[in-house]
């Protein structure tokens, strides 16, 4: 192994990878959310479709997409490796759990939350690739822009799908609540002045962003049944 791969394969190195990929995915969530909000514009999904069309044909975004998939892959691989190492570090557990609530609840279950998110992501990406490459959706009438919005509106008519989506967003919120501030600590950025602000912004982010995502299917579902 070269010095570089060795540096990233120790436990601190793996955490560095988790931290950097995690922060990148945190940024990606905002970009994705902006796109999703266009579904609520009330124009039958035209804005959303145009945004998706722009993203699909923008070389910068395409490079970003590849970087993102590598990021997800590294985050998952190192996350699973760390979870395995951490679990094996205590083969015999304690008879009495430590009840003192000194650590945040979310920090204890980052691995299990991650696995739930991975399951959600697998279904989400299956849909994404299926419609992107294998069964392209129809274009909007009179344009060369594919009508992804209609597909989304149909998907969100299913209550099971909406509930599953909302639960996944709650889990992402838990994962972000610890992950956001933990990423900075792993990078070595712990400071008396800034750490409280990072923790506050992290918790706020962990509430607002998943809430934004979860609202969209709920609103579409309610609009659909009230029509």
């Amino acid at each position: 192994m070269s010095w570089f791969t060795k540096a990233l394969s120790g436990s601190v190195g793996k955490k560095l990878v988790m931290s950097l990929t995690g922060l990148f995915l945190i940024l990606f969530l905002i970009e994705h959310l902006i796109g999703n909000f266009m579904l609520l514009k009330g124009d039958g999904g035209v804005a959303f479709n145009e945004f998706a069309h722009f993203m699909k044909h923008n070389p910068v975004i395409l490079v970003g997409e590849i970087v993102m998939f590598i990021g997800i892959l590294l985050h998952v691989i190192d996350g699973l490796a760390l979870e395995r190492k951490n679990r094996s570090a205590r083969p015999i557990g304690y008879a009495t759990p430590n009840k003192s609530a000194v650590t945040s609840w979310t920090s204890k279950y980052m691995g299990p939350f991650g696995i739930i998110i991975l399951i959600f992501l697998a279904i989400h990406l299956y849909d994404f690739f299926r419609y992107k490459y294998f069964s392209p959706v129809d274009n909007m009438p009179g344009t060369d822009i594919s009508d992804l919005a209609s597909l989304v509106y149909i998907k969100f008519q299913s209550l099971v799908y909406v509930v599953f989506y909302v639960i996944a967003m709650i889990v992402i919120g838990f994962h972000l609540n610890h992950g956001f501030q933990s990423a900075f600590q792993t990078l070595g950025l712990n400071h008396a002045k800034y750490t409280p602000a990072i923790k506050f912004i992290g918790s706020l982010y962990a509430i607002l962003v998943p809430l934004g995502y979860a609202l969209i299917p709920v609103i579409i579902y309610i609009q659909n049944i009230s029509n």
Partner: peptide, 22 residues
């Protein structure tokens, strides 16, 4: 020191803060 720490079979840090609290 970190290489030895890993070799001994300790887990990695999840930044939960339980260590510092106890």
């Amino acid at each position: 020191m970190l290489m030895q720490m890993d070799a001994e079979g300790f887990g990695a840090c999840t930044n939960t803060g339980a260590c510092s609290a106890e």
